[in-house]
Each structure stands twice: as structure tokens, then as C-alpha cells.
Simulated scan of single mutants.
Amino acid sequence: MTVAADLLLRHFQTLVADNARWQGLIADDLLWELPYGPGIGDPARLAGRDEVMRHVTWFLGAVENFRFFDIQVQAFADPEAAVAEVKAEAVIKPTGRLYRQQYVVFLRAAGGKIASLREYFDPTRAAAAMGKPILPQAS
């Protein structure tokens, strides 16, 4: 397993289940891109540990019984890059609704840490579970 593939697997294993351990995996200048985030009022990118942790803290407070499953990590020829397809489910605390999602996540590692994440998800599923409208995207 490459450095990036291992980090990506550990990202899924610890983000929710052991967030303190997850924080040790990320670079201080982590860039987390969420291209579909603006469709539900979330940012398109989080830059640096402080921004990432604000968003992750909000997320962890908004979900209950969150779990990732069917994790399929693929290493690239470049040992510092990997991609994964993963499913997740949780209950959204403010609405009590079930959240089911499929993600595709690209990871780039640097210095043995997660340097960047690019996460794709279906914003319509997130909006339905969170009781949020789908917002128009700027072109």
C-alpha cells in the first residue's frame, strides 16, 4: 500500500471514530476542496488546519452514528496520490433524517501527511437530509 492509499484509508477510519487521531494525519496547510459544497451553502474549499477543523467540528456535531463503509481505495503510480469510492450513512441531528451518501475522494500526500483532499458527493442527498435548499451554482 502506498503512503497516500494508507492515509486515505486511515482518513475514513478515524475522521469520525477517532478525530484526535485523524488530526495527526493532516498537514497544517491542508487544502480540502468540496466542489459541490456551495450547492448546499457549504464552502467550496477549506484552507489550513483552522478552517478545516471549524468545518469538521460543525460536521461532527451535526451527525449521529456516522459510518463509512464499502471503502475502495485505489493507489496511483505516484505514491503520494490515491482515490477512493466510499459510502456513508448517519442521522442528521437537527432534522432526525437519515443521510446516505456516496463519495469519491482524491488525496495528495506530502511529508507523510494529508496535504489535500478533493471530495465529490451528491448535494441533493445532503440537502434532503439536512433540510436545506439546493442553491444555484455560479457558472
Rank of each mutant, 00 (worst) to 15 (best):
M1N: 15
M1C: 07
T2R: 08
A4M: 02
R10T: 15
R10W: 05
F12Y: 15
Q13S: 10
Q13Y: 08
V16G: 02
V16W: 08
R21C: 06
G24P: 06
L25A: 11
L25E: 12
I26P: 03
I26Q: 03
A27M: 04
D29F: 03
W32H: 14
W32S: 15
L34I: 12
P35R: 02
P38D: 01
G39V: 10
G39W: 03
I40K: 00
G41V: 04
D42T: 10
P43T: 06
R45S: 13
A47W: 13
E51A: 14
V52G: 10
M53P: 03
V56R: 06
W58L: 12
W58T: 04
G61E: 08
V63F: 12
V63N: 12
E64M: 05
N65D: 15
N65I: 13
F66C: 13
F66W: 14
R67L: 07
R67F: 02
R67P: 01
D70C: 08
D70E: 08
I71L: 14
Q72T: 05
Q72N: 10
V73S: 11
Q74K: 10
A75M: 07
F76I: 05
A82V: 11
K87Y: 13
E89A: 13
E89I: 07
L98F: 12
Y99S: 04
Y99N: 04
Q102A: 13
Q102P: 01
Y103T: 04
V105R: 09
V105K: 05
F106C: 13
L107K: 01
L107V: 09
L107T: 01
R108V: 07
R108W: 03
A109E: 10
A109G: 11
A110G: 03
G111L: 01
G112M: 15
K113V: 05
A115E: 07
S116K: 09
S116A: 13
R118C: 09
Y120T: 00
F121E: 00
D122N: 15
D122R: 04
A129H: 02
G131Y: 00
K132D: 12
K132M: 14
P133I: 08
I134M: 15
L135V: 03
L135H: 04
Q137A: 12
